[in-house]
Measured scan of single mutants.
Amino acid sequence: MQIFVKGLTGKTTTLEVEPSDTIENVKAKIQDKTGLPPDQQRLIFAGKQLEDGRTLSDYNIQKESTLHIVWR
């Protein structure tokens, strides 16, 4: 499925993911596209910070959802 990651600059990155992907895995995909290391990424969805060990489905993140990224 496709999801979007929007940064503070307003730039949006598209990712191809599975609902079973962990947040850690998603951060690795973001690094592949942007070069930003996972330890500098904070992902937010529906006002919650996403924890590395959880999956996208744990947070009810579905296709075409938009996550927000904040740099540490």
Score class of each variant (00 low, 15 high):
1 M>H: 04
1 M>C: 03
1 M>V: 05
1 M>D: 02
1 M>F: 15
1 M>E: 01
2 Q>G: 04
2 Q>I: 15
2 Q>S: 10
2 Q>E: 09
2 Q>C: 07
2 Q>D: 05
3 I>H: 01
3 I>D: 01
3 I>V: 05
3 I>W: 01
3 I>R: 01
3 I>Y: 01
3 I>L: 05
4 F>V: 05
4 F>N: 05
4 F>T: 06
4 F>P: 01
5 V>L: 11
5 V>A: 04
5 V>D: 01
5 V>I: 14
5 V>Q: 01
5 V>G: 02
5 V>K: 01
6 K>H: 14
6 K>L: 09
6 K>S: 08
7 G>V: 08
7 G>F: 15
7 G>M: 13
7 G>A: 09
7 G>E: 11
7 G>R: 06
8 L>C: 11
8 L>V: 11
8 L>K: 09
8 L>H: 13
8 L>N: 07
8 L>Q: 09
8 L>D: 06
8 L>Y: 13
8 L>I: 12
9 T>D: 15
9 T>Q: 12
9 T>M: 13
9 T>C: 13
9 T>L: 12
10 G>P: 05
10 G>K: 08
10 G>A: 08
10 G>D: 07
11 K>M: 13
11 K>R: 10
11 K>V: 13
11 K>F: 14
12 T>D: 06
12 T>F: 11
12 T>P: 09
12 T>Y: 11
13 T>V: 15
13 T>D: 08
13 T>W: 15
13 T>R: 06
13 T>G: 04
13 T>H: 15
14 T>K: 09
14 T>V: 13
14 T>A: 10
14 T>S: 10
14 T>E: 07
14 T>H: 05
14 T>N: 06
14 T>L: 11
14 T>C: 07
14 T>D: 04
15 L>M: 05
15 L>T: 01
15 L>H: 03
15 L>Q: 01
15 L>G: 00
15 L>F: 06
15 L>D: 00
16 E>L: 13
16 E>S: 11
16 E>W: 15
16 E>D: 12
16 E>F: 13
16 E>C: 10
17 V>P: 00
17 V>I: 04
17 V>A: 04
18 E>D: 11
18 E>T: 14
18 E>K: 14
18 E>P: 03
19 P>D: 06
19 P>V: 07
19 P>Q: 08
19 P>Y: 07
20 S>L: 09
20 S>K: 08
20 S>R: 09
20 S>C: 06
20 S>T: 13
20 S>Y: 10
20 S>P: 03
21 D>Y: 07
21 D>N: 06
21 D>I: 05
22 T>H: 04
22 T>V: 05
22 T>I: 05
22 T>Q: 04
23 I>Q: 01
23 I>R: 00
23 I>C: 02
23 I>V: 09
23 I>Y: 01
23 I>P: 02
23 I>L: 04
24 E>F: 13
24 E>Q: 11
24 E>T: 07
24 E>N: 07
25 N>Y: 10
25 N>S: 14
25 N>T: 15
26 V>C: 03
26 V>T: 04
27 K>V: 02
27 K>F: 03
27 K>D: 00
27 K>I: 03
27 K>N: 02
28 A>G: 09
28 A>H: 12
28 A>K: 15
28 A>F: 12
29 K>R: 08
29 K>S: 04
29 K>E: 03
29 K>W: 04
29 K>A: 06
30 I>E: 00
30 I>R: 00
30 I>W: 05
30 I>P: 00
30 I>T: 02
30 I>C: 02
30 I>G: 01
30 I>Q: 01
31 Q>M: 12
31 Q>Y: 15
31 Q>N: 07
32 D>V: 12
32 D>I: 13
32 D>C: 08
32 D>N: 13
32 D>T: 12
32 D>E: 14
32 D>G: 10
32 D>M: 14
32 D>H: 14
33 K>M: 13
33 K>C: 06
33 K>N: 06
33 K>H: 09
34 T>S: 06
34 T>K: 03
34 T>Y: 11
34 T>I: 13
35 G>S: 05
35 G>V: 02
35 G>M: 04
36 L>C: 07
36 L>A: 06
36 L>F: 10
36 L>Y: 11
37 P>C: 07
37 P>M: 07
37 P>Y: 06
37 P>Q: 09
38 P>F: 11
38 P>T: 14
38 P>M: 15
38 P>I: 14
38 P>K: 15
38 P>G: 09
38 P>E: 05
39 D>V: 09
39 D>G: 13
40 Q>S: 11
40 Q>N: 11
41 Q>I: 15
42 R>C: 12
42 R>S: 10
42 R>I: 15
42 R>P: 02
43 L>R: 00
43 L>N: 00
43 L>Y: 02
43 L>E: 00
43 L>A: 02
43 L>Q: 00
44 I>Y: 15
44 I>R: 06
44 I>T: 07
44 I>K: 05
44 I>D: 04
44 I>E: 10
45 F>W: 08
45 F>T: 02
45 F>D: 01
45 F>E: 01
45 F>K: 02
46 A>V: 06
46 A>R: 12
46 A>M: 14
46 A>K: 15
47 G>W: 04
47 G>V: 02
48 K>R: 11
48 K>T: 12
48 K>N: 11
48 K>E: 13
48 K>P: 01
48 K>Y: 08
48 K>F: 09
48 K>M: 14
49 Q>S: 09
49 Q>P: 11
49 Q>R: 09
49 Q>T: 14
49 Q>I: 15
49 Q>H: 12
50 L>P: 01
50 L>S: 01
50 L>H: 00
51 E>L: 09
51 E>A: 08
51 E>Q: 10
52 D>E: 10
52 D>N: 10
53 G>M: 09
53 G>I: 06
53 G>F: 10
54 R>D: 06
54 R>A: 08
54 R>H: 12
55 T>H: 06
55 T>L: 09
55 T>E: 03
55 T>A: 06
55 T>F: 05
56 L>S: 00
56 L>Y: 00
56 L>F: 02
56 L>D: 00
56 L>G: 00
57 S>N: 11
57 S>D: 08
57 S>M: 10
57 S>K: 11
57 S>P: 02
58 D>M: 04
58 D>Q: 06
58 D>K: 02
58 D>L: 02
58 D>R: 02
58 D>S: 12
59 Y>H: 03
59 Y>F: 04
60 N>C: 05
60 N>V: 04
60 N>H: 10
60 N>L: 06
61 I>K: 00
61 I>L: 04
61 I>S: 01
62 Q>E: 11
62 Q>P: 08
62 Q>A: 10
62 Q>D: 08
63 K>R: 11
63 K>A: 15
63 K>L: 06
63 K>D: 14
63 K>W: 07
63 K>Q: 12
63 K>C: 06
63 K>G: 13
63 K>S: 15
64 E>Q: 09
64 E>M: 11
65 S>L: 03
65 S>A: 09
65 S>V: 05
65 S>N: 10
65 S>R: 03
65 S>Q: 07
66 T>P: 02
66 T>E: 07
66 T>I: 12
66 T>L: 10
66 T>M: 10
66 T>V: 13
67 L>A: 01
67 L>E: 00
67 L>I: 15
67 L>R: 00
67 L>T: 01
67 L>F: 03
68 H>C: 09
68 H>E: 13
68 H>K: 08
68 H>M: 11
68 H>S: 08
68 H>Q: 11
69 I>T: 03
69 I>M: 10
69 I>Y: 05
70 V>I: 12
70 V>S: 10
70 V>K: 08
70 V>G: 06
70 V>T: 11
70 V>D: 11
70 V>C: 08
71 W>R: 12
71 W>T: 12
71 W>Q: 12
71 W>I: 15
72 R>T: 15
72 R>C: 11
72 R>I: 15
